[in-house]
């Protein structure tokens, strides 16, 4: 199973990861409810295990947000206290005992899975679009038109991963993070790094 484990206690999370991985599960660990919502919306996980008391956003609020968005995969609460809110599929009492957790997890099914189809013709057309966008970005870099540069990078970030160009999407994500953290001086260097990374990337 692919498990999403939302827990602010790092030691507990490490222990859970170890036990779950030994039992053949894949675990993605996040530290708060906000990150849990964002991860859950990737629809990569079969079951979500949610600590009720977490910083930034608690587990109940995160579960409620997901349910409001029609999220129908199992969400399991983990708490030392009684949990009365509806919306959880199950409540696991803390401290967790792996044997019990495993037994309870077995009642859930794997989420239905499918593979995205990318017709070759469409992929080739998209690659040409990326090549054109990279030439445009180079021009924008020389003209120091940073808002336009950032908008085009944002578009690449959102689309490249869908067409199997995950690296371009990752580089764009890194550029966006660097941009938020850097001043005007560093922005130029971030943009240059992004262009160099993309150029070195094999598109076909």
């Amino acid at each position: 199973m692919n498990l999403l484990f939302a827990e602010d206690d790092a030691l507990l999370a490490q222990l859970f990861q170890l036990q779950a991985q030994q039992a053949g599960h894949a675990v993605c660990w996040v530290e708060n409810g906000d990150a849990a919502v964002q991860q859950a919306l990737s629809y990569q996980h079969d079951v979500i295990l949610m600590d009720v008391q977490m910083p930034v956003m608690d587990g109940v609020s995160a579960m409620q947000l997901l349910r409001q968005l029609g999220f129908d995969r199992p969400i399991v609460a983990m708490s030392a206290e009684d949990v009365v809110e509806t919306g959880f599929d199950l409540v696991l009492k803390k401290p967790l005992h792996w044997d019990q957790v495993q037994q309870q997890l077995s009642q859930f099914q794997l989420a239905p899975s499918a593979v995205l189809q990318v017709p070759l013709e469409l992929k080739n057309a998209y690659i040409q679009h990326v090549e054109h966008a990279l030439r445009q970005l180079e021009q924008l870099y020389h003209e120091e038109k940073w808002p336009e540069f950032a908008a085009l990078v944002h578009q690449l970030k959102g689309s490249a991963g869908s067409f199997g160009l995950e690296q371009i999407s990752q580089f764009a994500h890194q550029f966006q993070i660097s941009r938020e953290q850097s001043g005007d001086e560093e922005l130029r260097a971030c943009a240059m790094l992004f262009l160099e990374q993309c150029k070195a990337c094999k598109l076909k």
Partner: peptide, 22 residues
């Protein structure tokens, strides 16, 4: 999105699992 009445929310990139879930 929820406040404005969205029924669901997916994050790009598109995957078949996300589309199927929706």
């Amino acid at each position: 999105s929820i406040a404005a009445g969205a029924a669901s929310f997916i994050v790009k990139p598109f995957t078949a699992d996300k589309i199927l879930a929706v």
